[in-house]
């Protein structure tokens, strides 16, 4: 029962969203709601707001009218898998870098005062600005025979967004042990390293799980946006742009990659939740961040 509850609530939320969509579409003004020349709510035309049924049935139809074209949902699943893979790489890099930065900052006060402002500042640089930089630098890198790939640039950008919550959350977590526990370790005369392994890292888990969840969301968003700005095809980001151009004749189609992106987000959140289950015993007294 207690387990079913969040699932039921989740389903109820989705249903509510659908009802709101169709309700507004049926009852709202055809030209949308405009305040002082600003469109606050969209038009209710089939073009701007296709019926849910339209979006759904469109998934089952072929991508294009060309012969041998796969069903739209198959194309979306493939693209979503591609994007998810890159996001996962970005997330892992982000988590590793974020953890290392947090440990470094915990270990050396000077590192904290030197790094922390830059870490915070790094997140104010817009993605659009770093995307060309990263692919530009990447194109100059070679590993023997193989060359830097565009997907690597995307993964780097995803990690750029993912490392931030991890470094901040982990730093807070690493500094969370109570004085009594720190003194206990001191009476055992163990060094920084063992204190890190046996006390600081376990104590940081309650701070880390919410940070990892944020990092996962950031990695997915970063991947989708970077796919667009770097022009990497194969993922849902590029697919969104492509399909949007066909929207006038095929209003259901652009929604397919959006659903794909949502599914990626859900899977990413699920993976973190699973990780949280594995680390359950370290999460007594979880902090909500």
């Amino acid at each position: 029962m207690t387990r079913a509850r969040p699932i039921l609530l989740g389903v109820a939320g989705v249903v509510l969203l659908g009802v709101a969509w169709e309700g507004y579409k049926a009852l709202g003004p055809a030209d949308g709601v405009v305040v002082n020349g600003l469109t606050v709510l969209p038009r209710t035309s089939d073009l701007a707001m296709p019926h849910l049924v339209t979006m759904w049935t469109r998934l089952g139809e072929p991508v294009t009218s060309a012969a041998g074209s796969p069903a739209l949902w198959e194309a979306v699943v493939k693209a979503a898998g591609f994007t998810l893979g890159i996001a996962a790489v970005g997330w892992i890099i982000g988590v590793v870098v974020g953890m290392l930065l947090a440990i470094l900052m915990q270990r050396f006060r000077t590192a904290e005062s030197a790094l922390l402002p830059w870490i915070v500042l790094s997140q104010t640089v817009p993605l659009i600005a770093i995307a060309p930089l990263v692919s530009g630098w990447g194109s100059q890198i070679r590993f023997g025979e193989s060359r830097w790939q565009d997907w690597m640039s995307v993964a780097v950008i995803a990690s750029y967004l993912a490392f931030f919550p991890v470094s901040i959350g982990a730093l807070r977590g690493l500094e969370s042990p109570e004085k009594a526990h720190m003194e206990l370790m001191r009476t055992y005369a163990v060094g920084w390293w063992k204190t890190l392994l046996r006390l600081r890292l376990p104590a940081s888990v309650p701070y880390l799980i919410p940070a990892l969840r944020l990092a996962a969301a950031n990695a997915v968003i970063g991947t989708v946006v970077a796919e667009v700005s770097i022009g990497l095809s194969g993922g849902v980001g590029r697919m969104m742009v492509e399909y949007a151009s066909t929207a006038s004749g095929d209003p259901g189609k652009p929604w397919a990659p959006i659903f794909g992106a949502v599914a990626i987000g859900l899977i990413a959140a699920g993976v973190v939740a699973l990780l949280g289950l594995v680390l359950k015993r370290y999460r007594r007294g979880e902090v909500t961040a």
């Binding site: 109570e178 206990l184 370790m185 055992y188 163990v190 046996r198 376990p202 888990v205 370290y282």
Partner: peptide, 29 residues
């Protein structure tokens, strides 16, 4: 040199370790 054992005013157990795990902590370290 670990010449003393200490018990504080507060128990100060590690919440993520079992009772046995807490007792084993100094030995493990």
């Amino acid at each position: 040199d670990q010449d003393y054992g200490i018990a504080f005013q507060q128990a100060g157990l590690l919440p993520w370790r079992t009772v046995a795990g807490n007792i084993e902590l100094p030995l493990e370290l």
